Simulated assay, not measured.
Amino acid sequence: MDVKISGLPVHVVEHGGGIPVLALHGAGVDHREMAGALEPVFRDRPGYRRIYPDLPGMGHTPLPDWFRGSDDTLDVVLGLVDALVGDEPFAVVGHSFGAYLARAVADRRPERVAGLALICPIGEEAGDVPAHAVLHGSADAADALSPDERAQFRDYFVVQTPAMVERFREHVAPALPLVDGAGLERISGQWRLSEAPAETPPYTGPALILAGRQDGTVGYAGPWELVERYPRATFAVLDRAGHALPHEQLGLFTALVAEWLDRVHEHRTT
């Protein structure tokens, strides 16, 4: 479905009913990556309304000419929360740039955000990150992909096995031709929010921060620096995982997100 926010048709996919969980994907993909990571968590866990939007310039949500940067994207996300969730408490999960936005949502709506999960979150400043390198895989695993897809896959995954190729083909590759590359490039110079998450009071609800030990995009040291802002955060660095951590460590990801949801439920009912 499309939801009009400030005149912008935001494409949203929903599953289930119950406690709202807003899931924000990273740059260069669309809602399918977050759905592919999170739906296994909810397979045997009813009572959650999962909300998966396509962020502007990705998937089926256009990037209007009046967009200037991440402040506009955040305004759209907050408008979406108000339109779809209202005053009801909700949880928010974000991956990469989506985690940056998720932090800002918790900062702007602290009394309504019942839980916050950050997966491979980007920070305000780029810190030291490991060089991208294949940790495990076979040389011919990506041969079934197109040349463009193959390049994207090899730059994203540090575990390059046939199973990871299939996850890439199902949850990442379909979004690639839908990205408004020129539009995102136009606003990339203002990707930092004018009111940075670090400038607001700490978020005190149940939180989860996951980092990939081999993440060549944001690293793991930068995410660790967020811990002091989240006094109820579980922090985990997962080996055999890069920036594609939700795919490469799906079992641990599922278990840790499920435990976070248990804490969110406990927090809401006490």
Rank of each mutant, 00 (worst) to 15 (best):
E170T: 15
G183E: 12
V29H: 01
S96P: 02
K4H: 10
T270L: 12
E88C: 00
R32H: 11
L38Q: 05
P64I: 14
A117P: 02
A91W: 00
I51K: 00
G16T: 03
E125V: 14
V159Y: 11
D2S: 13
L210K: 06
R232M: 08
V29T: 02
I5W: 09
E33H: 03
H267Q: 08
A221H: 10
D215A: 02
R49Q: 11
A244H: 08
E170Y: 10
G219D: 11
V77N: 02
L178I: 06
Q160W: 15
R108W: 09
Y203A: 05
A131M: 14
P162E: 05
A236S: 14
A207Q: 07
L55G: 03
D44Y: 01
G59R: 02
D239M: 00
Y52A: 00
S194F: 06
I51C: 01
P202C: 04
H136G: 00
R263W: 07
I209N: 03
H132K: 09
V264C: 03
E228D: 14
G181F: 15
L135Q: 14
G79W: 07
S138L: 06
T73Q: 10
H11R: 12
A236W: 06
G123R: 03
P162V: 05
A133C: 12
G26E: 05
G16L: 06
R103D: 04
D128V: 13
D44H: 10
L78V: 02
G242D: 10
D71T: 05
P231K: 07
I51A: 00
L250G: 11
S188P: 04
G205W: 01
A241C: 03
D239P: 00
A182H: 13
Y230W: 11
A207R: 04
D107H: 01
A236T: 10
R109C: 07
E185I: 05
V134P: 00
L118N: 04
A196E: 15
T217Y: 09
P40L: 10
V165Y: 08
R49W: 05
A91C: 09
R229H: 15
A196K: 11
P130L: 12
P62G: 05
A221S: 06
Y156V: 13
D65W: 08
Q160H: 14
P201L: 13
I119E: 03
I119S: 01
S96C: 12
E33W: 13
A27H: 08
D215H: 01
V10D: 07
S70F: 09
G26F: 10
E88K: 08
Y203D: 11
A207L: 09
C120D: 12
L250M: 13
R169E: 15
D44R: 00
T254Y: 13
V3N: 02
S138R: 10
P201A: 12
P147M: 04
P9S: 05
A196H: 15
H171L: 06
V158S: 05
D215I: 04
E149I: 04
G47A: 02
G127R: 06
A139Q: 12
L118I: 12
G123V: 07
L176H: 06
G189E: 06
P40Y: 10
P201Y: 14
Q160D: 13
R154K: 12
L261G: 03
T254W: 12
E125G: 00
R263Y: 07
S70G: 05
I119N: 01
M164C: 08
H60Q: 15
S188H: 12
S146P: 01
L145M: 04
I119P: 01
A221N: 03
S146N: 02
A102C: 07
R229D: 15
F67I: 12
